[in-house]
């Protein structure tokens, strides 16, 4: 564990808490892409298949359980209690391409051809693009609630900090995995436009609006 990874994990934790807070406080999931949330649920379930077979630490297990449970809870609540508060007509990104693309990528680029490793790799590639339906929806509506922008910033910062963590781990431990590094870079690049608007507007107290 190093400071980059710890802060990254805490940002990830914070992002989910901010999202839950947004939904509860505004009693609405408006502006949230259900498809992105569904993709994150698939990401965590496929990545943490080793939950019962591979012990790392209490911290690691607790975080895994939280990420699976919270993403499942959000998907469930968006389908049930908050079903009428968000508009599926705005959430039109074709996730079949992301699900299929990640499958192809994990079949071509992986380190071991085993059940757990293929699903782990699939989750890494899928996570890199899971935010696209959300960004696509925001580019269509041209704006986002401030709390939603904070949620997205924390979520984007988490993977960006993991990239820094991987560089740090390579320098200090010689630990290197190029698949998550590359996927993390892709995800951070996808966030670039969002980060720009977040820093230039939301951090200065203005509303998140696309130019």
């Amino acid at each position: 564990m190093n400071v980059f990874r710890l802060v990254a994990d805490l940002m990830h934790l914070a992002s989910i808490l901010i999202l839950l807070l947004k939904i509860r406080k505004t009693r609405s999931a408006a502006g949230i892409s259900f498809k992105s949330q569904l993709l994150y649920l698939i990401v965590f379930v496929t990545r943490y298949l080793d939950l019962f077979t591979h012990w790392v630490s209490l911290y690691n297990t607790a975080m895994k359980v939280f990420f699976i449970a919270s993403s499942g809870y959000i998907v469930y609540q968006m389908q049930r209690r908050y079903r009428a508060t968000w508009d599926p007509a705005l959430d039109t990104f074709r996730i079949e391409f992301l699900l299929g693309g990640a499958a192809v990528m994990s079949l071509i680029f992986h380190t071991k051809f085993t059940f757990l490793e293929l699903f782990w790799t699939y989750s890494i590639w899928l996570e890199a693009v899971a935010i696209l339906p959300q960004l696509f929806q925001m580019s269509r509506t041209g704006e986002a609630e401030t709390i939603t922008a904070h949620y997205l910033f924390a979520l984007g910062a988490y993977r960006g900090l993991y990239v820094v963590n991987w560089i740090y781990r390579y320098a200090t431990e010689g630990y290197w995995e190029w698949i998550p590094f590359l996927a993390g870079m892709v995800q951070t690049v996808l966030y670039a436009d969002f980060f720009y608007v977040y820093f230039s507007r939301v951090m200065r107290g203005k509303k998140f609006e696309l130019p």
Binding site: N60, L116, W120, Y162, N165
Partner: peptide, 10 residues
């Protein structure tokens, strides 16, 4: 060891 499960990150 469990197959492929060497990942210690989240």
């Amino acid at each position: 060891a469990v197959e492929g499960a060497t990942h210690d990150e989240l």
